[in-house]
Design a protein around this nucleic acid. Structure first.
Lengths: 205, 205
DNA sequence: CTATACTTTCAGTAAGTACTGAAAACAGGA
DNA sequence: TCCTGTTTTCAGTACTTACTGAAAGTATAG
């Protein structure tokens, strides 16, 4: 295992199901605190459409701040090799963790980005691209369909078309502005509070 | 059916699986455009942890801009009464659609909020409460655990604890600022671009 | 009170998603 | 070349979530 937390006293302090609970007072506390965070993070991820295990792996890498190998992950989170491998790859694809070779070691290590703002930017950019952009495109497509041929004969039909057009417009406006905000996050991401955050904090007290 | 789109010519223009495709040129286009939007919205919802059907129902109510009853929803989206009933209730609970009685009618109608910014505010506020707040609380709890007893004997242990503490702090800072931004959205929600959006647009060009 | 029109609930099931474990593939060393 | 330690893939399965349809519930009208 890569971690510097080595087991000293294999005391029979069997804490529940968690894999190999450690050792000294300090280590135990550290371990417990980390697990607390990891689990919460996993739960949150889930409700945002990110699978629990992936979120937990990321939380583990983030919170320890140390490179960990596949076996570390498997052991700490009690998951299979296959699952670990695929989830780690997915996280790499997202760009919020990265692979890491250690001199003279065969196995690969992984570490999380350290800057939360940067991670957020990456995620926001990707989700915008994958989810907002297609919606915006669809809205434009809808608008085109209703712009050209526009109007029926009866008042009721005109009304119905007008309503839908109006709703499309409202949504479009919202998304365009939202996208601009996202863009700013993305463009100014690095190191600590970025421009958007600073602007907001100043303007809003 | 409540909608003003009555079937005139039941022409054999059977367009795929979609429930009873309508009628005149205009109606057909309107219907198609709406369906396009509805489906995209459903897909997006799904990746944000909102179930597809709920998102589609909401999209339907939003995009038509007209009050619709349970049967309208069932028919348009091809879903069962039970599903429609439960999803409509859930949307009401979120507060982004509302029940509506029509004079002299027994059945209930539903309509979507019309202001996208308001809807967004409601959703953001709720998700903050349900997902961010618990994480923040957990972070504080972790910090407390590591603050008190702090440090082990060996340098390696000190290092490990320090790392985790640092990471917790980074995440906390991020969430506090994010929460402030959310707060602003919530506090200034009504009618079109709110203060946050205006501030951002001005400040960022 | 009964009939009618509509809504809600929920057990059972279908559909979808995540996970395992073993086999295959890969890469460096001998 | 083969051996060894490691990662990746994927068929099968376990688990989770969403949906249906029918029965029970509610409310209004007669």
């Amino acid at each position: 295992m890569s971690t510097t937390l080595l087991k000293d006293e294999p005391t029979a302090e069997a804490t529940e199901a968690a894999a190999k609970p450690p050792i000294s007072e300090v280590d135990r506390k550290l371990h417990t605190a980390q697990d607390l965070f990891i689990r919460r993070w996993g739960e949150m991820g889930q409700t945002w459409g990110i699978n629990r295990t992936m979120a937990e792996i990321h939380a583990f890498l983030y919170i320890t701040g140390m490179p960990q190998c596949t076996d570390d992950v498997m052991e700490r989170l009690n998951i299979s090799r296959g699952n670990a491998s695929m989830s780690l790859r997915a996280l790499c694809d997202w760009g919020i963790i990265r692979r890491l070779h250690k001199r003279g070691e065969r196995r690969e290590y992984f570490e999380s980005l350290s800057d939360v703002w940067e991670m957020f930017s990456i995620i926001a950019a990707e989700r915008k691209r994958r989810e907002m952009d297609p919606v915006l495109e669809t809205i434009k497509q809808c608008q085109k369909m209703l712009d050209e041929s526009a109007l029926g004969k009866s008042a009721a039909r005109k009304e119905a078309v007008a309503l839908t057009r109006h709703r499309l417009q409202g949504m479009e406006e919202f998304m365009v502005v939202t996208n601009k905000i996202f863009q700013q996050f993305v463009g100014n991401a690095r190191s600590g509070l970025n421009r958007v955050a600073r602007v907001l904090l100043k303007a809003l007290g």
